[in-house]
Each structure stands twice: as structure tokens, then as C-alpha cells.
Amino acid sequence: MEPLLDIHDVTVAYHRRPVLWDVDLTLTEPRLIGIVGPNGAGKSTLLKAILGLVPLASGEVRLFGRPVAEQRRRIGYVPQRESVDWDFPVNVLDVVLMGTYGRLGWFRRPGRKERARARECLGKVGIGELAQRQIGQLSGGQQQRTFLARALAQQADVYFMDEPMAGVDAATERAIFTLLHELRDQGKAVLVVHHDLRTVPQYFDHVILLNMRLVASGPTTEVFTPDNLRKTYGGRLSVLDSAGEALRAASGD
């Protein structure tokens, strides 16, 4: 079987400053994968490099054994919430419908079928009643759920999510987490940029530790170790403490 995702030798640089450096990574099975690393470690850039949104200084990315440009329909993407203008004159349903655009191709307009699917996806993330709301009136958590519903509407095989749990309330975080698990159980791969070390062992089966270079990638139980974390974060004690706490909690379960 072709590997799900094959990142070979990828370097991304802005001028001479490397953001990703010689990243080699192969994922074979669809899993719930967390991408973890300190600020400026290139987590978002890794997603963007995979999706072809930033130019690569070297290397290549293959998805299901083929270049990503040929696999667009199998990809779902959740950008960071700050990346769009929330004053834009669209309502929640419109945003979710955008998820179906990729499959429609040029010129065709979304029809009844797409609308029904968009509503269904909104229901899945628990904001079905907000369909007609203008997006600027949503809370942070609701905005994030809208983005998730849009990704669901893409009906993808691989989902890339950039900090979906940043700045959302606890209820939303739980809802997102449940949803991600459902996706995983349906055999989809989900790559999530995550910033909260404490919840990593609880949320993800597989972790990618990144600090410009790939520090480690593998099942959470094997890779999410204090030694690897030290290599990722350096000597920032507070971070290590919270991670240690998480590890203890995970092993106590």
C-alpha cells in the first residue's frame, strides 16, 4: 500500500532563515496525529508546505503516493481562525458550503444536495441552529466549529487542522475532540497542530515533535517522552513540568 503521507527532504526558508529544515516523515496509517512544538517551530508551515501553500526550498510531498496537486479532493483544511476577515458578508451556512466548492469544479453552483450536506455537517458540530447567522456575530468557539463543519463538508480522506483548539471554550474543545475521534474511527487521517502539551497524550495516537527539524514522530506512548520534549522545547522548565504532569496522568489512567 502507498504510504498515506510521504514528506521527503523538505526545507522551507524565508530568505535564509529556515522554518523547516530537512524534514523527512512518512505516515502509513490513518490516525489522529498531533503536531507539537514551540512557537515558531514551523508547525503551521509544515501544514502549508504539505498543502502547497508555501514554496519549498527543496524536497517533495506525496499524498497517497502522488503529488498533492493531484489529490486536492482528498484533503480537508482548517486554517487558523485569524486568517480570514470575519466581517465578510456571508452567513454560517455559506461558509460551510464553501467546503463543497472543491468537488463541484468550475462554474457549477452548489445545489440542494450540497445544502443538505452542509446542514448535516453543521449539525454534527452542534451549531445547526446558527446556520443563518452572520459569521461576525459568532463567538470564537462557534467560529471554530464553523470551520470544522466546512472541513467535514469537504468529505476528505485526510484533514489538516491548524490550531483548532486555540482560544476556544472548554465545551468546544471537548466537542472538537470527540469529532476528531469519530473521523479517526471512520478511517480518516487527521493532522492537528496543537499547542497544549497537557492534553497531547489524551488526544492523539501519534505525535510529531517539531522544532524546525523533525525531532521525533511515532506513537504517542513511545515518542512523547521527557527526553524528546527536552529536545523539542529546550530547557523551558515550565513546559516540561506541565508535560510531565500530563505523562503521569496518562500513565495513571
Partner: peptide
């Protein structure tokens, strides 16, 4: 009319549009 959805999605979220192949 023809490019309604392309114009909309590229105006709102160009990164998403690109990731979908628009």
C-alpha cells in the same frame, strides 16, 4: 454569475481555495 463561488471563496479564504485546487 459564472465565477460566483470562485470569487466568493478566493475573497474570503484564499488559502482554503488553494488547498481545494481553485
Amino acid at each position: 454569475a459564472l465565477f460566483w463561488k470562485e470569487l466568493k471563496v478566493t475573497s474570503f479564504d484564499p488559502a482554503l481555495a488553494t488547498s481545494m485546487g481553485i
